[in-house]
Amino acid sequence: MTTETEPGARSRQGLCDFPGVSCANPKQVDPGTPGRPPKYCGREGAGVDGKPVVHNKANAWAAKNRLARQPVRSDVAGAGSGPAGAPAIGPVTAARVTLEQLMKGNLPRLVEELEGYLAQIAEAVRTYGDAEAVAAEVEQLQAASRAELADLERLRGQEEHRRRKAEQQAVEAEDAREEADEAARDAVAALDEARLEVAVAKEAAEQARRDAEAVRERTAAELAQLRQELADVHEAAAGELERTRAEADQRIRDVQTTADEALRRARSEAEAARAAQAAAETDRQSAQLTIDELRTELHQERERHRAELEALRTEHRVDRDQLRADHQSRLADVKKAAEDRFTALTAAHRAAEQVTEALRHQLQTRPEPPPANPEEAPVTAPTT
């Protein structure tokens, strides 16, 4: 008999069974090692409180504990509670007790009652000879028996469902225990690892303290050595400073002597330069006078050349006008001669045309002369 939860279980087959959520990820692949196969996907997903967690045994055990600690509604608690002060009975124990009561108490009694009914029916059949009535009554009794058997089957199915549910709860309890053990082992391993890390850290701190002590001792020795070297350097620097100061004083005296000599030479050269500058100034003034005279002469020469150029331009303009007038006069004469010649040629041409016309007319009107020899007369072809 199929229960109501079996289709949902079949639809969730092969998917992650993380408690409190409906994870759509498939379960982890079975590695083939001893123990129960994986029930969770091992991926990050929503938890009981909606926050993302990794779906593994440890987190599943924590989620089941959180679901178990959640408050139960009053109506559900009232329906499942027993008498006041009675100890709470687990669902597995209650299902087992109910199944035993039904199997040991009700089912044998019902079977005995059914056998009694069937015996009474057989006796009634033997008593009455009406086969049809007997058959009808037997059919009715069989229908009632089938109905009772169906009820019994339904009760048995319900008990089977309760038994399966109890077994499933037992399996879940076993899984929860294994997950709790796994979480405890992980916690113990983490604690051991933390203790080991603390021991390593303590050892590292002790080693660092020893190293710091050694470094401090070496630093003190090096500091004393550096102080001694600094004192030596100060003494050497003082001696070097005295020598440098003496050398600097000698160099200053030498430089001062050289500077005085150079100053005397510079003064002599300055006097010579002043004399040369005075001579150069005199030469400059004379050159300036010469330049002024040359500028005056250049201006006068430029004015003279400008006047000559203007006269040449005027003369050229007059000559150009005269040439233009002469050219116009000669051009008029040539045009007049050409016109006269053209008129004469036209008249001669007309006279020649008239003479030609007269000669042509004369040739057309002149009679042909007779031939001198009759034999030379033209022979006329006979007409056919």
Rank of each mutant, 00 (worst) to 15 (best):
V215N: 11
A214Q: 09
R209Q: 14
L241N: 05
E193Y: 07
L155W: 15
A190L: 12
E235D: 12
D249Q: 02
D254F: 06
A147N: 06
S268N: 04
A201H: 14
A190I: 05
G239F: 10
E242N: 03
E174L: 14
E213C: 01
A173Q: 13
D260Q: 13
R177H: 10
I252A: 02
A184W: 08
D130Q: 14
D211A: 05
A170H: 11
E247R: 08
R245L: 05
A183N: 01
A201N: 11
H161S: 00
Q207W: 01
E182C: 04
A136D: 04
L263R: 09
L226D: 03
D151F: 15
D254K: 06
R251Y: 06
E174Q: 14
H234P: 03
A201M: 15
A231L: 14
E203Y: 02
H234N: 14
L241H: 13
E132N: 13
A208C: 09
A201Q: 15
A208S: 10
D181R: 09
A266T: 07
R162A: 04
A221K: 09
A212V: 01
V200D: 05
R146W: 08
E247G: 05
L223R: 11
L191G: 11
A212F: 02
L226V: 01
E137G: 07
A143H: 01
R245H: 10
E153F: 11
T257V: 09
R210C: 02
E137H: 08
